[in-house]
Design a protein around this nucleic acid. Structure first.
Lengths: 189, 189
DNA sequence: CCTCTTTGTCAACAGCTGTTGACTTAGAAG
DNA sequence: CTTCTAAGTCAACAGCTGTTGACAAAGAGG
């Protein structure tokens, strides 16, 4: 039918809506700190619907986070300017955290007994290899891992800053050090 | 009495025992992933005793972790060799995680709604300033924060490696890069 | 209008969590 | 031996969690 009043019951739409809300919550607070009632409420839906559509809370996490995380955005650009570019992104990152953020998700959910291992597998099977093949050179996986490590550490620092009153390293000089630290792992010697 | 068969009921001893067990568990799994029954069982004690002695699980965390964490071990040595020294410690860190480990505790409990803010305050009120005053130079707090950030990132990487089969950066060349990355923040330009 | 499938809600259930107050026991003091 | 206090145990309680199966409503097709 030709859009009489926009469909009121659209399974695909509500599914996607739940996923979007879940991505934001899982990113901001981590898997264990999020309740299904909380996510369902913000999605304007009954909690039972999450289990109907995704099987379980873990299933929702897998579909909304594990299957959707990508590092391609990090690798768009030349290697020479990688450090400065990524450092700029991390420093000026929007603190409202509206979308699915790879580093934030991993940093906030890695300690979870339920999904920690899933994140570890995603990291070593997809993300690290992808970065490694982009890097090339010697020990690419290990250098890729240390790049990820550097970003995760900065993410936690951001969380510490948000919880307390710790200042972010917003000075030019220190940000440049951070950029050089990242570039260190890109350059093969 | 002169030690007839070693006292069987020693409040101070059991208290300290609970603290030691709690330190190991909180370090290895994080605050939220540890149950009081679990800690009490390993300490050979009834769970209720934790509340009797420390008021609450949070109180135990505060006394066993927050009040006991120190960074003095990191700052023993000259600045010139800081990077190499700390990198060596982190790379060769005992994976059994037997004791109270500052970086592991923060990395594994920072996402906790209960104690996350406590960790943030401890960081910005005690640890960062202490490292900063040891560093000296320009923007000492920010450089200190980035050193902590680097260590926290590496800690998470270690957790990813333990959960999965990700290789640690154990090659000489990559470890040296990690050391240089740390040294970057010690050297004031 | 009737029917059947999809979409969604509702109440309830187990399981686990930290926590509490009443009880018991060990061990020193009188 | 009796008493009294510190040390520890026990069962139970609320509160929360994810999850389930029975029910209700919407809307398309006959």
């Amino acid at each position: 039918m030709a859009n009489p009043k926009t469909r009121q019951r659209d399974a695909t739409k509500t599914r996607e809506n739940i996923i979007i809300v879940a991505q934001r919550h899982f990113t901001a607070k981590g898997f264990d700190a999020c309740g299904v009632r909380e996510i369902a409420a913000e999605a304007g839906v009954d909690p039972a619907l999450i289990n109907r559509y995704f099987g379980s809370k873990t299933g929702l996490f897998e579909e909304a986070v594990i299957n959707e995380i990508t590092v391609e955005a990090l690798l768009e650009g030349d290697k020479e300017s990688f450090g400065k570019r990524i450092a700029g992104i991390m420093v000026n990152k929007d603190m409202s955290g509206q979308a699915l953020d790879p580093t934030a998700v991993v940093a906030n959910s890695i300690a979870s007994p339920t999904v920690g291992a899933m994140l570890a597998r995603m990291m070593e099977e997809r993300l690290i290899p992808q970065i490694a093949s982009w890097l090339g050179g010697r020990y690419p996986e290990q250098r890729a891992a240390l790049i990820v490590s550097t970003l995760l550490g900065y993410e936690i620092l951001g969380r510490l800053a948000k919880l307390g009153s710790l200042k972010h390293p917003n000075s030019e000089a220190v940000t440049e050090k951070f950029a050089r630290s990242l570039q260190l792992y890109v350059d093969d010697k």
